[in-house]
Design a binder for these strands. Structure first.
Lengths: 90, 90
DNA sequence: CGCTTGCATCGACAGCCGTCGATACAGCGT
DNA sequence: ACGCTGTATCGACGGCTGTCGATGCAAGCG
C-alpha cells in the first residue's frame, strides 16, 4: 500500500480523483494532466485499483475511478499507532 | 516519505524502534532481527533518517535511533484529507 | 457493418534501488 | 599505542518498476 503511494504520479492521481467533481473522474480527464503517455496512466490506475485504493466502473464508453476512503483511513490509523497495541499494557 | 515507508524492512525497523524500550533502539539490537546484512540495515536507517522519520545520536560506542512522531502525524493527517484543503471552500 | 474513440494489455527497454562484501571510521579497553 | 567492537560508507551487481510504442478490446455512431 505504501508502495502504491510511493510514486508521485499515483499520489497525484489519487488527489485528482478525490478532488474531482462528484469524487470520481474518467480516465480521459486525467491523461492530459501528466507528461506521460496514456498506457502509463492506465498502468498506475491499475496499481491503485489492485491495491484497493480506488474503485473503477465502465460507464458506456468511459471508465470512471473513485477513491475508496477506507484504505486511506486504515493507513492513517496505522501511522497514529506505530507501536504494537498488544504490548501497551507492559 | 511514502517511498521511505514502501520498503518492508524500513517499515518494520520503524515499528521495532517505536516499540522498543524507551522508544529508542541501538543498531546492534536491530541487525540480528533481519535476514539482511549490517550494511543494508545501516542503509535503510540512513534513508529513514534523511526522510525525517527517525532521529539518531551516537552515545559512546553505540548509535541510537528513535522515531519522530511529527512526521507520522503529518502523513496521517494527509491521508484523512485526500483532497486539497485550499479548495475546500469550493 | 465498418469506422472512430476510449481504455487496457503486451513486450521491451532503462533507470532506480535493495543487496552484498570489502573497507573506513569512531570509540573503548588494555 | 594497539587491537577490538560497533557503525557507516563505497563500489558493484541484479532485480524490480516506470516508461514507451504497438496492439487489442469495448462501445457508440454513421
Amino acid at each position: 500500500m505504501f508502495k502504491a503511494l510511493s510514486d508521485p504520479i499515483r499520489l497525484r492521481l489519487l488527489s485528482l480523483i478525490a478532488s474531482h467533481e462528484g469524487g470520481e473522474a474518467c480516465v480521459c480527464d486525467l491523461i492530459g494532466l501528466f507528461d506521460v503517455s496514456q498506457p502509463t496512466i492506465s498502468h498506475h490506475l491499475k496499481v491503485l485499483r489492485e491495491t484497493g485504493l480506488v474503485g473503477s466502473e465502465r460507464r458506456g464508453t468511459w471508465v470512471y475511478y473513485w477513491v475508496l476512503p477506507e484504505a486511506l483511513a486504515k493507513l492513517s490509523a496505522l501511522l497514529q499507532t506505530p507501536a504494537v497495541p498488544a504490548e501497551a499494557s507492559a
